[in-house]
Amino acid sequence: MIPVADIVFYLLAAVLVIAALRVVTTRNPVHSALFLVLTFFTAAGLFVLLRAEFLAAILVMVYMGAVAVLFLFVVMMLDVDFAELRRGALSHLPVGLAVGGVILVELIIVALAQHSAGPVTEPAVAVPNTLAIGRVLYTTYLLPFEIASLVLLVAMIGAIVLTLRKRPDVRKQVISHQLARTRDQAVELKKVASGEGA
């Protein structure tokens, strides 16, 4: 019996790591965003292997369908010259190394705290994953859930305030104006004497 699930796991994991590395190493920002999409997709595959189909679907729909598209929009809108930005980046190397080192130490501590990672393709919870999320999200994590809605509200209003510009010169169809128009406003009748109209 070939362990198909394990093979798929290692395949997806390898693609994920390579794609994630390419996100930060590629020179073209558009390619970078597309590698990010690949990273999300392979991560969704890993979720499916853990029987977390809901998370996989969310990753595909929200992250790939919306967030990655947003990144692409930003890249296309700003037209940033990344070669220009990278110039002088070496001077920030000490700070970057310090932050990266701290994160690395944290990751090692978390990895050591786990007794074992367990089988890579076994279900993480016994009940269906959507049900498991629903049971804790709306009871234990009630407050973060409600705060999430406020964060979304801030994001929405902020985006509208920052980007919405009315164009004064745009002609638009306003149906109520059209319907409110009466015969008197639209038609003018002139009585022209016979033979004098020219």
């Binding site: 809108m77 979304l152 994001a155 929405m156 985006a159 509208i160 919405l164 510009r165």
Partner: peptide
């Protein structure tokens, strides 16, 4: 930039 606004609203 209005595409960005639509995308943000879509995400939310």
């Amino acid at each position: 930039v209005r595409y960005y606004l639509l995308a943000i609203l879509f995400v939310v």
